[in-house]
Each structure stands twice: as structure tokens, then as C-alpha cells.
Computed example of a mutant assay.
Amino acid sequence: MDWIKKHYEKILLAGALLLLILVAAYLVFRINRLNEDIQNALRLPEPPNKPVSLVELTTYSNAIVTLQAPPQWTNPNVAMLFPPIPVKTAAPPVTVPVEIARPQIVLEGISRRPFQLQFKAYVWNAAANEGRSFQVNFLTENRSFFVENVGSEIADRHGKTGYFITKFERKINLVRKPGINAPIEEDVSQLTVKQESEEPIVLTLGKLAVYPKRYARIRTPERTVELPLGGTFESGEKTYKVVDITDKEVIILELKSGEKQTLSLMPISQTPMAPVVVPREGIQEVPMSDVLRKREMMLK
């Protein structure tokens, strides 16, 4: 027993080796047996073939002959089954010149908005007794302009406004202020500006002037714009300028050709309102007895 305990690992290895030898021998035996079965299967005789029964082919032969030589229509008493129909030749197309109408421009409305101006500063030339270098602020548009002389347009390199300085009058008033014994001079000079077809506007130095300014709402095929007098817009390949705005119409000028066009306000179609019909079931009928009872309670 002691020898087995000392060499049990060798005994296990010997047993495993013996088992592997037996498995290998079994595999060799099975492979040889499989090869013999395959060889025997290849040497088996083929089963005898049965003779094919004859089939009647007359119908198929006749069909083939009919397809190769189809029967012809030989009845001489029948006229042409499909007589030819004369075809009328269509006349060549006629090219009609079409005049393309110019884009339609419509005046949708005229409105008045408050416009803020301020005469801010000027330079007085005592030798020539005249003013120059006038500063005018267009507060509504957040722009300041410096105009050198009377008669010049209020404009700068970014654009024109259509306003011209037509007159300047220097005025100095003597006013007294609390805490000051002697009167002091206050400059209240006035500057007159005017836009074509508009009333002149008198601006006092340092004071805010607010007046209503007309705006025209014009619709073109491309967009709708709101422009004051002197504003420009484009329609198609042409550029137009608003040269006059009245309460009912606007005159625009095509800058390239010089052609003027008068736009009148569009008539507003007033659609009559449909009468409201109240269904009978929506009316609550009150008995006369209830009405008399409430009236008596009010009298008491």
C-alpha cells in the first residue's frame, strides 16, 4: 500500500495512456470499416431502366405546322376590313407676339407719422452778417447733417433727405434768470427747411420740432415698402422715386426714363356683415305670471 501511495501519479498516467491507445485503435477500426462501406456502395449494380411509353404527338405537330403557315383571308366578297383613314396634316403653329406687361405697382395706403427735427448749432459770420455750417438732427432716423450754406440740401455722402434750407434768421433775446441781476442773451435763431410739395418747417435753435410726415405704403410684385417723400424703391429692373405724396395719391418717378406715374389709393371693398340668426331653442321663454310677480316685488 505504501508503494501505491508513493507512485499513484505514475499509475494514473499509465491508465490514461492505456485509454488513449484503446481509443486510437477504435478510431482506426471505424475508419477502415467506413472505407469498406463506401467501396461496396460504389460497386453495387444500377437498377434497370424502364422503357418510356410512346406519346401521341399529332396535335403538337399540327400546331407547329399552323404556326409556320397560318391561314390567309380569301373571301373575295368582303371589302377591306380596315379601310385606310386619311390623315389631315396640322397647320404649322403661328407665333403670336405677346407683350409682357410691366410689373404692377399699387398704392395700398397713406399714413402720417410724427417726425422729429432739431436745429442744433450754427456758425455766425459777423463780417458777412450771415450764418453757415448749420447742424440739423433727424432724431427719428438717428442722423445728424452739417450743411454749409442756405439753399443747400440737407444731405451727406450716405444719402439725400430731400430737405433744403431755404432761410436763416438770427434772433437774440434778452432774458432774466433767477439769481442773475443783469439780463443775458438767449439765441433763438430760426432755420427754415422745406421739402418739395410740403409746407416749410421753421426750426428754433435748440428746440425739438415734431410734425406729421406722410408715408406711402406701396406694393410691388416683389415686396411691400413704406416710403416717405424722396424715398426710392426697385421693381423689376427699374428704380422709382417718390416725388409727391398727397392725401389720396402718390406720384413716382422712374429714374432712368424720367417717366412719372400717379398711384391712387385702392378702393376698399366693404363686405356687408351677415345677419346673426338665433335658433328658437336658444331663446328662453318666461311665463307672464313670473314677469308680473317680479314687477309686483319691485313696486313693493
Results as ranks from 00 to 15, higher is better:
S235Q: 08
T232V: 07
W124C: 02
L22N: 12
E130Y: 05
L27T: 01
W3P: 06
K241E: 09
N32T: 09
P92S: 13
Q195C: 05
R223P: 00
I268G: 05
K241N: 06
L208A: 08
E222H: 05
L54G: 09
L263R: 03
I172F: 01
Y26V: 09
E46M: 10
Y8S: 11
L229R: 01
F168G: 04
H158A: 10
A69M: 12
S133L: 05
R176T: 10
L265Q: 10
P84G: 11
K171T: 05
S289E: 15
P178M: 07
A126N: 12
A24W: 13
Q270R: 13
K248E: 04
P71D: 04
Y211L: 07
E169V: 10
A79N: 14
E234H: 11
L205Y: 10
R293E: 07
K177D: 11
P212M: 04
K10Q: 13
N137W: 04
L107I: 03
P114H: 00
A155W: 00
E226H: 03
A209K: 10
I31N: 12
R113S: 05
E9Y: 13
Q68K: 06
T224V: 07
P212V: 02
P45I: 14
I218E: 00
Q195D: 01
N149I: 02
S197N: 10
K194H: 05
V277Q: 13
K294D: 15
V243G: 04
T140P: 03
L57Y: 08
T192L: 05
Y163C: 04
G159F: 10
L205P: 07
V52R: 13
P178W: 09
I180H: 13
L205W: 03
R280W: 11
P48S: 05
P51H: 10
R219Y: 00
T204M: 03
E285P: 05
L18A: 15
R157V: 15
T204N: 02
P83R: 08
E234Q: 14
T58E: 13
R43E: 14
A63Q: 14
A155D: 00
N35F: 09
R293C: 04
V98K: 11
D247R: 02
L299D: 15
Q104P: 05
I184C: 05
V175G: 00
